[in-house]
Simulated assay, not measured.
Amino acid sequence: MSTKLNQIIAVEKGVKAKAHQDLATAHHGLQKAPLLAGIARTYQPKDEEGEQLPPESTRVQVRAEDVLKQTATSLTRLFDVTATKDWANCEARADVTVDGQVLIGRAPVSYLLFLEKQLTDLAALVRKLPVLDAAESWTQDPSTDDWRTEPVRTVRTKKVPRNHVKAEATEKHPAQVEVYYEDVPVGYWTTVKFSGALPARRVSQLLDRVEKVQQAVKFAREEANASEVTDQRAGDPIFGYLFG
Results as ranks from 00 to 15, higher is better:
167 A>C: 00
7 Q>F: 01
17 A>L: 12
44 Q>I: 14
2 S>N: 13
203 V>D: 04
213 V>E: 02
166 K>I: 11
88 A>L: 03
181 Y>C: 00
209 R>V: 06
156 R>Y: 02
200 A>T: 13
113 L>H: 10
9 I>G: 03
136 E>R: 10
108 P>L: 06
92 A>R: 07
226 A>P: 11
156 R>N: 07
202 R>T: 15
137 S>E: 05
240 G>L: 04
90 C>N: 11
144 T>Q: 02
162 R>I: 08
47 D>A: 14
230 T>A: 11
7 Q>H: 05
59 R>T: 15
69 K>M: 07
72 A>Y: 02
69 K>Y: 00
237 P>Y: 01
103 L>A: 13
163 N>Y: 09
46 K>Q: 14
65 E>H: 00
233 R>N: 15
125 L>H: 08
80 D>W: 00
234 A>C: 07
149 T>F: 10
208 D>G: 15
31 Q>K: 13
93 R>H: 06
32 K>S: 08
168 E>P: 02
22 D>L: 11
220 A>T: 13
54 P>C: 04
161 P>G: 04
55 P>I: 01
23 L>P: 01
128 K>Q: 15
73 T>F: 03
91 E>D: 04
46 K>N: 14
229 V>D: 09
101 Q>G: 01
242 L>N: 06
204 S>W: 01
210 V>Y: 06
103 L>Y: 11
45 P>H: 07
147 W>A: 05
55 P>R: 09
20 H>K: 13
166 K>R: 15
168 E>I: 03
71 T>V: 09
232 Q>R: 10
55 P>Y: 05
8 I>S: 02
159 K>C: 03
63 R>S: 07
144 T>H: 04
75 L>V: 03
86 D>R: 01
180 Y>P: 11
207 L>T: 07
106 R>S: 15
244 G>P: 07
231 D>S: 14
198 L>M: 10
215 Q>A: 10
124 A>N: 11
92 A>I: 02
199 P>F: 01
184 V>Y: 04
85 K>P: 00
97 T>G: 06
72 A>H: 05
55 P>N: 00
22 D>K: 06
217 V>R: 07
129 L>Y: 10
200 A>G: 08
192 V>M: 03
176 Q>D: 15
152 V>M: 11
82 T>E: 11
118 Q>Y: 11
40 A>R: 09
156 R>L: 13
213 V>R: 06
142 P>G: 01
50 G>D: 07
34 P>D: 12
228 E>W: 03
47 D>K: 05
128 K>F: 01
117 K>A: 15
178 E>V: 07
18 K>M: 12
105 G>D: 12
118 Q>P: 04
216 A>P: 04
133 D>H: 06
34 P>L: 08
165 V>E: 13
89 N>M: 05
89 N>H: 02
81 V>Y: 04
159 K>G: 12
194 F>N: 04
185 P>N: 05
213 V>D: 14
90 C>A: 14
118 Q>D: 12
207 L>S: 14
87 W>K: 08
83 A>E: 10
40 A>P: 01
29 G>R: 15
125 L>K: 10
81 V>H: 09
161 P>R: 05
110 S>I: 13
157 T>K: 10
131 V>T: 12
188 Y>P: 00
202 R>F: 10
138 W>Y: 08
89 N>P: 03
